[in-house]
Each structure stands twice: as structure tokens, then as C-alpha cells.
Design a protein around this nucleic acid. Structure first.
Lengths: 356, 356
DNA sequence: ATCAAATAGGTGAACGTTCACAACAAACGC
DNA sequence: GCGTTTGTTGTGAACGTTCACCTATTTGAT
């Protein structure tokens, strides 16, 4: 692995602008006593060269680190988090990744990046130059952002892409992919219902622009087909919102041959479904079984608590961290992709169908 | 503000062990070609002096940074977070602090610390030495951990304590305190119910070992007293768990003179309360009004959605960050403490009492 | 015994930035 | 005009660590 010596330093800027290092430093730190024209000239060089001061070096010579630590009780935070058992993106991602990092002596830094226009290049570049991380983890929708991938590559930062689409990059060695098995999760839910005896299983899909929404439909359809059931009739489109879920559920229940079970592509739509069922005078799970996707804390406190497909979000970042760290070891060649299985959490919203 | 030159460096270790810098470096990095006895001697010095390598310096000379960046779509994360509008500790704290940091060119690092025994001194010390942050934010239960405060002080890291108990430290200049007005929140909820015409307002408290549980009771009691109502009769003790909430709610409803409204000290107990009321054949809000505390996402999707007191958790870290940064500015003397008001989010679980 | 290799340790430079101080010019008071 | 301040720029050292290279010692094969 070649040493990276590409960073543009204060020295380059000084040479470019024809001034001393100190003058550049003064401009950077907005110190007084620099002639405006000089300041302008230096700033121009900085902008043109895309120079960003290195936090490490700044820290070395006694300046600020521009870092603030948020200290949290490890045990308690973990306990809380486990207790919740649910799927809150930020929480789960952050903590899953952090714990894995801690085990290897690494540290995870959560960074919000703004993809707006020119911001991206500057901000992300600044973050990379300042922190000089050993790796980066991309979450949707960044995972497929070519611009970001380009910048990371240019800075020689290896990355892991979570929930990335596919192999468009013909096996670029820098990138690892980690995904959750949405299709498998949907199959799990469907099979559970089939095993209970259901034949007419409805599905409320997510918005088409989310790939995972499609995969979930695919899983349901595949499992229905495998059981010789109709994987087309009881499909209604939603968009992950409560309102769309309510609409879809009402439409399904109003059918001439209504489903005896409904799988909703996310929790909010599942909540809407049980509410719609209740409004229609149906008892859950006696008259209608409902399975949810995501397993956020929400669905544990509904009446009845929902059977749900759980996403391994925490494992997602944990795996990404592990793969990144392994890849650092000379000679090691970790797998270029990992697919994490989903699990089904059975609660009381599913039962055998009325007729059975 | 005096320059800090207290850190123990590789040089001190080398002198102490009577070897060269390079040998110490070799030991640190577990490189081969060091005699076991030598390695042991150096390690002893390292341990005794409490030496921790500086990430900044390591990074300078081309080694790893041991940092991994988790990149997240800023806009989307913020949108998600706002949409949720709820109170998930980690999420809210992290994002509130991060956005404030970003505005000032700072960066927030979330760090789990293990308070177990000797770990604390070493781990926290390592984190501080490695990252050399400009400030630290403590959350409960760390906010009152004297050991942690001592270590921070020794490393000259100014800190902000969130939800800290009190002024035991006779105005130590290093510390800022940020708290949420639990009592005020409880008053808000109580006043809301009084304004609706309720006279018998029940209160389900949290566990005594949490100070905030006491403050919430105080607020209810104070407001009841101010309205000439009985602030003792309708109190039942809970412990923040669903089960304890159910028990307390049943007890309140079984009274000879049951309350027409109940305030639960947290969301889970509020959920238990509406479930208990429903089991008792009561309609909410027609027969019983319920107000919840915390306002987690849970209470927006119950039937009916709950009126709740919202905790300004995000503002808590944001304020801490702001105060820490302000304090850095030479000559500035920010207030030593901030008390953030809670707000009442009115939904459909509260209405005038039946008789009124 | 002799020479090559391996092992154990040390030395000086480098990393990118800021600090303390020196140097010089311009502006000012008298 | 002269000394003094004020504003502007440059110079060398320092921060804490690792890297490349060098020197001594030990080991092993011939």
C-alpha cells in the first residue's frame, strides 16, 4: 500500500502565492496585520489548490482540535439500546459501528455530509483532509453517489457501502458492500404466514424509488409462487407513510376476496393497517394477521404487539467496520460483499386464518 | 488560558526507561526485534507514567489515524429526525450537538465510556490524550461522576454537564451546567388539565433514585397547590416501566374518587395507562384524559395520539456545545448554567372532564 | 576461524502547522 | 530630522511520532 503523499499543504500554498508559510497561516486563522491584497492573493491560492489545514498538524503545534467529545455511559447506553431491540437508524448504526470499532482500538466518527452542489467537494474533502480517517462507511443514499466515491478514491480512503445497489463499479478494490437481505426478510414473513395456513396474503409495498421496496415485493412474490399461491392479486402500493398504508389496507380489505393476512413493507403502514382493520370491525389476529417490516420500537407497544421482520441495522455498520479494518491488514483479502440475513420476531399479531 | 504542556510523551518514557525514542515506539507498535526484558522495562515505564500516544502526532508521521468516518446524508438525516419529532436520547443528543458544532466549524465525537474500576482512568485518559478535544459534554449519569470530572480537569478539558445535580462544586470555572426544566414541564401538563376543567388529576411518578422523577412530582404538586387542589391524594408510584404504569393506573382508577385525568411521568407508563383505561371500559379522552412525559415517537401512533410534555433533548447538547465554544473565546464569560424549558404537545388524549 | 546474515538498538530527518521573535517599512509626534 | 510606535512579513524552532538508515552485537553455516 503506497504511502499517500498527495495532500496539498501550507507549503504548496505559500509557494504558489509567493509568500512565507507564516503569512498563509495568518490568512487561514484570520489573524490581523495582513494587507488585504496579500490576504486575497493567498486566499486565491488556497481556493485554487483546494487546500485544507490538517487538524493533526494544527493540534501538534498547540492549536485547537475543533473536536468536542460527547461522553456517554457505555453500559447504560448499550443496555438502553438492547432493551429497545428496535430499529432506529441513527441509534443502531452508530452504536453497532462504535462497539465494533472499540474492539479493534478504532473510533467511529459520525459525519453528516451535505451533497448540495459545490459544497460536497469542499466539505467532504475538508473532513477527509482534517481527520484523515482509515476508512469510511457510506449509508444510503450516499452508497451509490458516484461523486462521493470519486472523492474518497482520490483521497485514498477505503470505503464500505451499505445497502449499495450493485456491481456497477467493476470490482473496484477500494469498495466493500454490505447489504441486508430484504428479499429474504420478505420470504421469511410470507413463509411464516403460509405455515400458519394463510392462502390469501396481501402485501403493501413501498415507493418504487427505493430499491429495497422492490426487493421486499420480490421476496413475497417468490415465496407465494413457491407455495403455488397468487403473488400478484393482493398487492397494493404504498409510500411508507401512515396515510398511504391506511389507504392500501382499506383497499385490500374492501376486495371481494379480502386477504386473511397482510404484510406491510414498513412499520408505519403496518400501524395504519391494524387501525384500518379495527375500524372495519376486524379483530387482530383472529380475523386478520398482520406482519410488519423494520421492527422499530413502535410495534412492540401496539395492541396487539406486531410480528415483524427485524432489520440487522447495527450489524450492518459493525460488519462494515470489521471488513474495513481487516482490509487494512497487509495481504488480507476480505470478501468484497456481505449479505446480512433478516430475522422474524413473532409477536401476537399473527395466527391461523379464520376458516382454517 | 495557559498553554497545556503536561502531556507525558514518548520522550518522557524513553528517559524513564533509559532507552531511545525509537525503542519505545517499537514497543508501542508491537514491532519485532525488541528483547523481551527491554520490552517489559519500557512497558513498565509506559504504565507507570500513564503514557498514551497522541493520535495527532502519529498521524503526522504517516501512521494510522484509527478513525473511521460514518458518512450520512445530512439533509435526509435531519429530515428524518425532524419528522420523528420525538425524543430518542441518542439520536436527539447526537444530532442536536452535531448541527450546532457544524455551525461553528467544530465536530462532535460520540464516545462511550466504561466507568468500571480502573478502566475509567485509562480509557478516558487515552481518549483525551489521543483526541485532545476542546471540550467534553457529560450526560447522566456521568454528569455527577466526580472521578470523570477530576480526569477532565487534570487534562484541562472544559466540560458541560447535562442534567447535573447541583452546585456541589463551588463554582469550578471549568464546568457549565445544562438542564431541562422537569418541574416546569410537569406544571405545564398540570395547568393544561386544570384549564380544561379537571380537578382530580392523578400523577404516576418515576423511581425515587432519579432526581428528575422527583422534580416532575414537585411540578405537579406546585401547580395543584396553586389552583387550590389536592396535590397528594392522587399520587401513585411507578418505576418508568410499562408494568409499573399499568399497576399504578389500575390503582388510581379503582379509587373511590378516581381522577378524571392522569399524568404519567414517562411514555411507557402513559401507554400502560391508556391500555388499563381501555380495559376498564373507559374512553380516552371522553372519560379520562392522559398526558405523557418524554414524547417519544411511540405516543404519536397510539389511539388516540397522546398529549405529551416534550423534552428539549437536542437543545440540551446544542446548548452545551454553544456554551463550550463561547467559553473558548478569550475574555468571554458565558453563564455557568442554562435551564431549558419543556413544551407541551397537545394531541387528542386530553379533553374537558366528563362532568364539566 | 571467517564471513554472511539476522537481531537489537540508536540517530537524524521528516510530517504540517503554529509560536516567539526578528526585521523592515511606514507613519507619527515633536 | 530623530526616535518611537505601529503594521506587515519572514525565520527558525518546536510540537510528538515514525521512517529510513546506520552501528553494534549475536548467530549460524562453511
Amino acid at each position: 500500500m503506497a504511502r499517500r503523499r498527495l495532500a496539498v499543504t501550507i507549503k504548496h500554498v505559500a509557494a504558489d502565492a509567493g509568500v512565507s508559510l507564516q503569512t498563509v497561516s495568518r490568512v487561514i486563522n484570520n489573524e490581523p496585520n495582513v494587507r488585504p491584497e496579500m490576504r486575497e492573493r493567498v486566499q486565491a491560492s488556497i481556493d485554487r489548490l483546494g487546500y485544507v489545514p490538517s487538524i493533526a498538524a494544527q493540534r501538534m503545534s498547540g492549536s485547537k482540535s475543533y473536536l468536542i467529545l460527547a461522553l456517554n455511559d457505555r453500559e447504560r447506553t448499550i443496555a438502553d439500546w438492547r432493551a429497545r431491540q428496535g430499529t432506529d437508524w441513527v441509534d443502531q448504526m452508530l452504536l453497532g459501528g462504535m462497539l465494533e470499532c472499540a474492539e479493534h482500538g478504532y473510533r467511529l466518527i459520525f459525519e453528516l455530509v451535505d451533497t448540495h452542489e459545490d459544497h460536497l467537494e469542499r466539505e467532504l474533502g475538508a473532513a477527509l483532509a482534517a481527520l484523515q480517517p482509515d476508512g469510511a462507511i457510506l449509508t444510503p443514499p450516499h452508497s451509490d453517489n458516484q461523486e462521493i466515491l470519486r472523492i474518497l478514491t482520490r483521497h485514498h480512503v477505503p470505503y464500505a457501502r451499505i445497502g449499495a445497489l450493485g456491481d456497477e463499479d467493476g470490482g473496484s478494490p477500494a469498495g466493500v458492500r454490505v447489504s441486508m437481505d430484504d428479499e429474504g426478510g420478505a420470504r421469511l414473513a410470507t413463509r411464516h404466514l403460509i405455515d400458519l395456513g394463510h392462502r390469501r396474503i396481501g402485501f403493501i409495498s413501498g415507493p418504487a424509488e427505493y430499491r429495497l421496496a422492490g426487493w421486499r415485493v420480490d421476496g413475497w412474490r417468490a415465496e407465494m409462487a413457491a407455495a403455488g399461491l397468487d403473488g400478484h392479486a393482493w398487492l397494493e402500493a404504498g409510500d411508507f407513510s401512515y396515510a398511504s398504508g391506511a389507504r392500501a389496507a382499506r383497499a385490500l380489505l374492501a376486495r371481494a376476496a379480502p386477504p386473511s393476512a397482510i404484510i406491510a413493507s414498513n412499520d408505519q403502514m403496518a400501524l395504519a393497517t391494524i387501525e384500518a382493520a379495527r375500524a372495519a370491525g376486524l379483530d387482530i389476529p383472529r380475523d386478520l394477521s398482520v406482519v410488519s417490516f423494520d421492527n422499530t420500537p413502535l410495534v412492540r407497544f401496539t395492541t396487539p404487539p406486531l410480528t415483524a421482520v427485524d432489520q440487522p441495522i447495527a450489524e450492518t455498520t459493525a460488519t462494515a467496520v470489521r471488513l474495513l479494518i481487516e482490509a487494512q491488514r497487509e495481504g488480507a483479502t476480505p470478501p468484497p460483499a456481505a449479505l446480512l440475513p433478516m430475522t422474524l420476531v413473532t409477536r401476537s399479531s399473527t395466527a391461523p386464518p379464520p376458516a382454517a
